[in-house]
Simulated assay, not measured.
Amino acid sequence: MKMMADSQRQAEVAGRGKDVMPFSLAATTHIFTKNVRGGIQQVVVKKPTDAGQVKMTRQHLQEIRDQFLKGDFSGPSHIHGQDMPGLADLKASKPGQIAIDYKEVKGGAQLTYTTSDVSLVAALHKWFDAQLSDHGKDALEGHALHDGMK
């Protein structure tokens, strides 16, 4: 029963994702790697030679970085719902409490979230877990061997 509920939720999230994400969810993999100061969110195209999807992925991550730095989490709210775990705490954070760095990677891009506030680290981790669950087969949990942030 839980698997059916999970599958239904994932289908609903994918449907709403089209309103926010310009790229194809099925053509990309979202990788969420937690670390002691936040984490890394990567979106990479399954076929890195698909230049159009790579371009849209990179543009989207740049746009959401800018929105998040302004406290605008309307994209995740629309896709995942207002009660998405961790989202309320992220929305309540003050400008500058979370640094978000953008970087291009092979076949896509990544955002690195860094904060010294332990409650915001916990919120980021809950937010990552919710996305892993909601994106199903199109998401992976990353494993940092050493993030250099002790």
Rank of each mutant, 00 (worst) to 15 (best):
T29R: 09
T112R: 09
E141N: 06
K150A: 13
S133A: 11
Y113S: 02
A139Q: 03
H60R: 06
K150Q: 03
S93V: 05
G39M: 03
V121T: 01
L87V: 02
Y102L: 06
M149D: 06
A144Q: 12
G108P: 03
G38K: 02
K150I: 00
A130L: 02
A14D: 13
A5P: 00
V105Q: 13
R58Q: 15
S116F: 08
P48L: 13
T33H: 02
L145A: 07
K70R: 13
I100P: 06
V118E: 14
A88T: 08
H143P: 00
A88K: 13
Q62S: 11
S93C: 14
H146K: 05
M4R: 10
V36N: 12
I31W: 01
R37G: 12
S77T: 09
K150S: 09
V43P: 02
A123M: 03
G142C: 04
M56E: 15
H125E: 03
F73H: 07
A122G: 09
A109G: 11
M1Y: 14
F73Y: 15
M3L: 12
E63H: 12
D19G: 10
D6T: 05
E63C: 09
A99Q: 13
V13G: 08
S93G: 09
M21N: 09
L87T: 03
D117E: 10
K126Y: 05
M1S: 15
K2C: 02
H30Y: 15
L61C: 09
E12N: 11
Q8H: 14
A92E: 06
F68M: 15
Q110R: 13
P95F: 13
S7I: 00
M21V: 03
E104P: 03
P85H: 12
D72E: 09
A88N: 10
D101R: 11
H60V: 00
K137H: 13
K34D: 01
K106P: 11
G81Y: 05
I31E: 03
A123N: 01
D6Q: 07
G96C: 08
P85L: 08
L87K: 07
K18F: 08
H30W: 10
S74V: 00
G107Q: 04
G52K: 12
L124C: 03
L69Y: 08
T33I: 04
Q41E: 13
M56K: 12
L140P: 01
L140C: 07
V105H: 13
M4K: 11
Q97A: 11
T29S: 11
I98V: 15
L25R: 05
R9D: 15
V121W: 01
H143L: 06
T33W: 02
A14E: 12
T115M: 00
G71P: 08
L132K: 06
L111H: 00
T29P: 01
L25C: 01
